[in-house]
Each structure stands twice: as structure tokens, then as C-alpha cells.
Design a protein around this nucleic acid. Structure first.
Lengths: 163, 163
DNA sequence: ATACAACGGTTGGTAGTTACAACTATATTC
DNA sequence: GAATATAGTTGTAACTACCAACCGTTGTAT
């Protein structure tokens, strides 16, 4: 069906691009809204939650590395670290060779909280995924990873801050 | 392969849920970063850009409806509208029956700017999609729409602001 | 018919997110 | 040992967003 649009490749690609653009826009709005809504439940802001998860997924790291993980400027990462330190969800690991760096390590309390958040959220995603066919369930994360990877590497090389 | 994990259904579903959770987290970070980076190019903030696109996609609407589209509080939507009005990308349509409502309509300048933004972004997405197989290209937006739809309806009914 | 509740929108105040620039302290290099 | 580079922090400013209080319009009830 809809053969008029599928006769040539170009229009199909452009149409898919436009649809992807719209779909991602809508997705980002919904996710942001959900995250804003959920964050308050744990006495943690959205970005603090992301930081905590990044530290758990990738292990102890420096402030700058944390910023890299989250695509944030080092000053922003520093303040994020400060907030997590104050809440004692993270601690500074004994400095080693280089006296400048701060190594951030998730505390037991941090792990507990993160586990709780992950449990709650996974529960939600489990219910959500039940509405999808098993093969789609499995494919979805892989596809999203690939999409993220592609977008991310498309931006990295230039690194130009504007246009 | 990996039969230990696939013998029962439960673990597979939970594992997919966890992966989806991580994948979406990463995706949202990358997209936010990209949007922050791009916004400045058009003398438009990220949320103003979203508002403009929503008004174009869904036609003229009231301030509250705009807020609904973007998952924002009406006061936030009001200020967004104000900013777009000041930039003359949007105008107030002649009020009708109800003297309270303001109907927002995109101006010619607004359409021009939106077209430009969409063109630039579609160009990016076109290049991005070229790395994907044709069937994946077509499936991706549909899948994302479905995902968005599912997340969105999962939140609507409760509408509870916290926990 | 008039008081009053409901609604749409705006404004004030506040909190969180983020970047850029300037700064401090530690390391490296020549 | 001075100059330079690097890691992190702090000051400042713009953006995002909510809640609460408000104004004016509309609808409803007595």
C-alpha cells in the first residue's frame, strides 16, 4: 500500500527522517515529564539521579569523567558531586598519585537508594513491556542503544558548541 | 546462546526491562545535550522550539492545550507563549465565543523558522538513518511512537504528582 | 438578577539545571 | 625553578519549571 511514496528511495528516507524526528521529540518530552514527576519521590533531583546511576553503572570515577558520562560541563558535574556528597550517597575515595583528582565512589546508602529506584522503575518497565511482543521486547533496548550510539558519535567529532 | 537466561520467561522480561531503562536513560541524556547545543543556532530556547513545533503539528490552540501537549503547567505554557509572541513567531487569534481563551497561531515568520529548523534536523536524521537497514529505518519511528504512547498513557490515569 | 463557583490566563516567587569565566591547587615540562 | 597544563571549585547568568495568588470571564444556583 501507499505505493506512490515507496516508488523511489529518497522520499522514503526523508519521510522516515521526519517521522523519527517527531517521534524522538515526543519521547523526550514524555520522559522528561515522567522523570520530573518521579524524582521527588526519592529526595533526589533528576540530574542527581542520573549521576548516581552513572556512577554505579561505570564504577568510581573523577568529577570530569562523570561530566563526560552525562554530557555535562565539569562545573556542573562538580556541583552534582557536591550534592551527592552532602546527601552521603557518594564519598571521596582516598586520593592517590594525583593530588588534584577526586574519585567519587557510591556509598552503601547510595547503592541502597539506587537499587530502590531501579526496582521501582524496572517494575514499571516490566509492566510496560508486557504489552509488547517478546521479540520486540528484546529488540527495543538494542535498537535504542544503537540509535543513541549513532547520535552521540555524530556529535562528538565536531564538538563545536554552536551550528 | 545464553540458554541459562532464556529458559524461563521471567528473567528475560526483567532483563529486557532493565536494559530498556538504561537505554532510555542514555538516550534522553544524549538528546538533551544535542538540543541544548542546537537551540542557540536559532535564537530560540529548547522549550520554545518544542512549543513552536507543537503549534505547527497540532494547529492553533489555547495556552492550556499547549501546556497539555508539552506536559507543562499552564503558567509555564503561558510564559512560553509570551516569549513566542514577543518574537512574533506566534500571534493571538481574534478571540471568539469565550472571552477568556487565547488562541495561539503560528505566524508566517514562525513557519519559516520552524521549516528551517526541521530541514536542518531532518538532514541530520537522514544521514543518521543511512546507517540503518531500510526496514529498521521504517520501523524505528513506529516503535518509538508506540513506546511513547505506552509510557504516556501509563502516567495519565493516575495523574498523581508524586509517588 | 445577583452572588458565587469554575475556568483560562497571567504574574510573583522559588528551586533546579546548566554553561562560561575566573580562580585555586596540584602536576608536568623545560 | 618558572611556565604551562590539568582537576576541581566558585561566581554569575540564563533557562526550565512548579506552585500559589491573582484577575477577568463564564456558567450556575438561588
Amino acid at each position: 500500500m501507499d505505493s506512490a511514496l515507496r516508488t523511489s528511495h529518497r522520499p522514503a528516507l526523508l519521510r522516515d527522517a521526519a517521522r523519527l524526528q517527531e517521534a524522538l521529540n515526543e519521547l523526550i518530552r514524555v520522559l522528561q515529564f515522567r522523570d520530573r514527576d518521579r524524582a521527588c519521590c526519592y529526595d533526589l533531583s533528576v540530574s542527581q539521579c542520573h549521576a548516581l546511576q552513572a556512577l554505579i553503572q561505570n564504577g568510581p570515577m573523577t568529577v570530569t569523567q562523570l561530566g563526560g558520562q552525562l554530557y555535562l560541563e565539569k562545573s556542573t558535574a562538580s556541583r552534582l558531586a557536591k550534592a551527592l556528597l552532602e546527601k552521603e550517597l557518594v564519598r571521596k575515595r582516598a586520593p592517590r598519585a594525583d593530588g588534584r583528582v577526586v574519585i567519587l565512589q557510591v556509598t552503601e546508602a547510595g547503592h541502597r537508594l539506587a537499587r530502590k529506584i531501579l526496582n521501582d522503575l524496572s517494575e514499571e518497565y516490566r509492566n510496560l513491556l508486557e504489552g509488547f511482543e517478546p521479540d520486540v521486547r528484546a529488540a527495543l533496548p538494542l535498537l535504542l542503544d544503537r540509535l543513541t550510539q549513532t547520535i552521540s558519535t555524530r556529535m562528538d567529532p565536531e564538538d563545536l558548541t554552536c551550528c
